[in-house]
Amino acid sequence: MSTKVRALTRYYLLDQLKYLGWVYALLIATFALLPALFALISGSFTAATLPNNLSDLGVGVIFWFFIFITMSLTYENFKLCIQNGISRRTYFKARVITLLLLSLIGVLIATIYYFGVTANFQHHSALKALLVQPYGGLYGRFFGSNVFINIVGYVVFTWIFMVGTGLTGMAIGGALSLLTTGIRRLVIVVVPILGFFALILIANISSSRTYPNDVDTPIEKLFKFLIGYNADGAAGSFNPTVPVITMIIGCLVMGAIAYYVNQKLKVKN
């Protein structure tokens, strides 16, 4: 790693961790302290109010939003870099390294919080807590009976997912910054609408069955393949290999797009 990549990575990591701290503080204030305060005023406050609120925070979901938004601020960060004699490639490298480290930190915090705080308050065992998670519901038993190993699997799986989210943010943020203001606004409005219609279309196609009920449509087959569906296994024992490979391919594609638009970044007057 060159000196500049290291210096820039260090800068970003510290900067992002600071913001993440603020986001968590805001999360606690909004969803735990404020409701507790209202409860206090309305007289429904009990000893369990605050711990209950605290145990229910969506730390992982918030982090998911955070990593997407912070990584989509491609142009804002680029400006400071080019002013300080940093090349686009160094900028890209530092951001990707930051994303990898920050995602791991974020996932670990969310995991520790979930299994350490939330699960405790809900009086769930580690296994139960894992299995009620979307990941656990599908793959929670894949690595056998050792809960810890399955939790590690969960961490790795979620980490890759967060990295993919961040790279998608980078690609979208970078691509949008290459457009002129007018076209950018148009894209921001039109693309979600098109996406919505596309979803309806897909739903229609997949629900209009021309196949007998016991035979899957091609889309159902594809979907089952992608999530690693296993007809014989019970819930929690699906195979995460295909989804992991799919996510990694997704990361590489998004990373390639993000790199491509990153190299085209330029200062706007």
């Binding site: 500049k4 804002e76 400006k79 400071l80 004699g85 090349s87």
Partner: peptide
Amino acid sequence: RDNDQTLGRIYLMSEVNLYP
């Protein structure tokens, strides 16, 4: 072009504000 070695040896103070 996209070179840390050379870009680190110049500084452009411009009308455009690139600082946050």
